[in-house]
Nucleic acid binder design. Structure first.
Lengths: 146, 146
DNA sequence: ACAGACTAGTTACAATTGAAACCATTTTCA
DNA sequence: TGAAAATGGTTTCAATTGTAACTAGTCTGT
């Protein structure tokens, strides 16, 4: 008799995390997707460019920061530049590298979506008490160190 | 002067969850994908069929339980049935519905992958102390109620 | 009994994605 | 120096996925 002990999916951590994460990302994405015709990948690119404002990140750095692969980033950037949401110049001193900055248009989107995303996060966290919030933060630090 | 307060991605909950969840799922998936030529979708189908052993779930019920959409499930099932890892019969009394059961082959895979997945989970949770584990559980219950 | 609404599941087609190959440039080091 | 390796980024092609439309079967209300 072999051991058929099944996975209790509804308690299995990787599964629950995946469900939770999908639900949350989807909820936020729905809003900005139709409102700005923005994919999640594109939004993340905008978010890092805003976060490292003035740094003139390269595509590779954006990829690192977002943990997305470079092809995805390259494509997102192509669309963003095309839509004039991001300005792309060439690095002086290294002609391979691009220098990326949000345009006014890009900032405008950021300034709407970022508060919206924060609001969403706040609503989520409101379901937890202070202890639980702290614990969650600590757990994330331990499980997914940057 | 507009408010450019950027999102601090590295502290933003939805983002962190998404990174964490992807890392974990990928880590487990890598193992069974090459070892059994099994996609994540297929593995989840196997997992629920194992979990509700004997119930003879329909495709729709599998879709509900896995929170995947019915087309994805339909395709996963097509491959699983083709590979004789799942047996599909027709429900008596409702010829639309299928009745799904793991075959011996399917169980064999389950009996390797399930412990492997559990082991992975255990390693993850080992990084947390008892309090943190409890807190995580509670937080998940609150944020993603079944 | 049977028309219309509904449900289970599949198929077809377009859009998205992933892997590998690719180009241009820069770095390394013999 | 300059040949080989490495890096930033894009392109290409195939595989995966999402949406909508579809088939087949069941249920509902008259």
């Amino acid at each position: 008799m072999t051991d058929h002990t099944p996975l209790e999916l509804e308690r299995f951590l990787p599964y629950r995390l995946s469900i939770l994460s999908n639900r949350i990302s989807q909820a936020i994405a729905r809003e900005y997707q139709q409102r700005f015709d923005l994919t999640m990948t594109e939004w993340r690119v905008i978010a890092v460019l805003a976060r490292f404002d003035g740094a003139g990140l390269s595509a590779r750095e954006v990829a690192e920061r977002t943990e997305m692969d470079k092809v995805a980033v390259s494509r997102a950037l192509a669309r963003l530049v095309e839509a004039k949401r991001v300005v792309r110049r060439t690095h002086d001193g290294d002609k391979r590298r691009s220098v990326l900055l949000l345009s006014a248009k890009g900032w405008k989107i950021h300034d709407v979506v970022a508060p919206l995303a924060r609001e969403h996060e706040r609503e989520l966290l409101a379901r937890l008490d202070a202890d639980e919030r702290r614990a969650l933060q600590r757990v994330l630090d331990k499980l997914a160190p940057v």
